[in-house]
Simulated assay, not measured.
Amino acid sequence: MKKYPLTYLVCTAALLGAGLGAAPPAAHPGHRVHLVFPGQSIQKAVDAAAPGDTVQLTVGTYRQSVKITTPGLTLRGVGRDTVISPGDTKVAPAADRAAATGCAEGGNGICVVGSKDRDVRGVTVADLTVTGFTSTGLFSMATDGLTVRKVTAVRNGVWGIAQERSVRAEFRHNTARNNGDAGLFLANTIRSEAGAQDTRGTVVAHNRLQGNRIGLTVRRLRNLTVEDNLLAGNCAGMFVVGDENKPKAGALTVRGNRVDRNNKSCPKTARLNAIQGSGIVLTGAEDTLVTRNLITGNAGTSPMSGGVVLFKSFVGVTSDRNRVTDNVLKDNSPADLVDVATGKDNTFRGNDCRASRPAGLC
């Protein structure tokens, strides 16, 4: 890609921003901005960038995938009209995608990936759309301090935005809509059995997760916060998933979210029963605080239907010492609060609700 002086590139980006919306922030002194137009290779710009640089995409559609391994790199569009969608690269069969080494070959749009021995630190992805990928719109693994902000992930085959084996991430002001599985999926690992990972304070805040199978899945993780999100129109709003591995999933906070009418009907899969009308579900989780959420209109007849549901894990592990406090719950069916986990020391206090199973939790 042809190189331009930093001052030219920053000014060009500012001029584009003036015509297309607010100008993107300039890079810090000493850091370069690599400007990319539709039809050009994002990957070439990423490969040419140094730590701390910005790869700035303009408005338009980029039919390609991109893999980021450079620490401190920022990949930024100028809003939803900067679109990354699949190109012509052959995608591996579904059974082989987990082992695929390339981002596009795995059916993914953007990949932020560290190594087995070293996390990639301080990457930011912001202000763009990823859509139409057979696996995941934006996938990250082995990252430290990843920021994903104002990304729209729509109609991807499995997950909209997903992360594994990572710490201290921030997912803020994103939209994940009509993806095949979870709009936002966070896990320790899906390739092997392992205990829950301490995320060291990952934050999921102010996101809109709508029309997916599950709005948000938190699988085998600890020490994170989920706050002020909208989870609506999915088959299930949120799952916190644990199992028999140690440490168990949990020790996290779910607060201030709006969980509304997650009443799509999704059929049974190899891992999960049919789901419909599930608000917030804890399975095999411990020490989780669910507080000050507005949970309304989640109604269904599946085993995990209801407003807040405590359920045994898929291998029969109970949910223990969870606290469900000060939530407002209305018009959830079969009940606002459901506890079929037969766990120990779960508490339900200060909730504004009408019906529970068993009776007496409201």
Rank of each mutant, 00 (worst) to 15 (best):
K2P: 05
K2R: 12
Y4H: 12
Y4P: 00
P5C: 06
L6C: 02
T7M: 08
Y8A: 11
T12K: 13
G21W: 07
R32L: 12
R32T: 11
H34L: 14
H34E: 11
L35H: 07
F37G: 03
G39P: 10
I42Y: 04
A48K: 06
G52M: 03
D53H: 13
D53S: 05
T54Q: 09
Q56E: 14
V59Y: 07
V59A: 12
T61C: 06
R63S: 15
R63C: 05
R76C: 14
G77D: 10
K90V: 15
K90P: 10
A94T: 07
A100V: 09
G102F: 10
C111E: 14
C111K: 04
V113I: 13
G114F: 07
K116I: 04
D117G: 13
R118H: 12
V125L: 09
V125D: 04
A126H: 05
V130E: 09
T134N: 15
G137E: 15
F139Y: 15
A142W: 06
V148N: 02
K150F: 09
G157P: 06
G157T: 14
V158N: 09
W159I: 10
W159Y: 11
A176H: 01
N178A: 02
N179V: 00
N179M: 02
L186H: 08
N188G: 11
T189D: 09
I190E: 03
S192C: 04
S192Y: 09
G195R: 06
A196F: 09
V204I: 15
N207Q: 02
N207V: 01
Q210E: 11
Q210S: 14
N212P: 02
V218A: 05
R220D: 11
R222Y: 07
L224Q: 10
E227T: 14
A236M: 09
F239S: 06
V241H: 01
V241E: 06
G242M: 14
R255L: 03
R258D: 15
V259Q: 05
V259F: 01
V259H: 01
N262Y: 02
N263L: 03
S265M: 02
C266F: 01
K268L: 13
T269A: 01
R271I: 05
L272R: 13
N273A: 14
N273L: 05
I275Y: 02
G277V: 04
S278R: 08
G279C: 15
G279S: 12
D287Y: 13
T288Y: 11
L289N: 02
T301R: 14
V308H: 01
K312M: 11
S313T: 04
F314P: 00
G316C: 14
V317A: 07
T318W: 02
T318N: 06
V328H: 07
V328E: 06
P334T: 08
D336Q: 05
L337T: 08
G350I: 08
N351R: 08
N351I: 04
C353P: 08
S356Y: 08
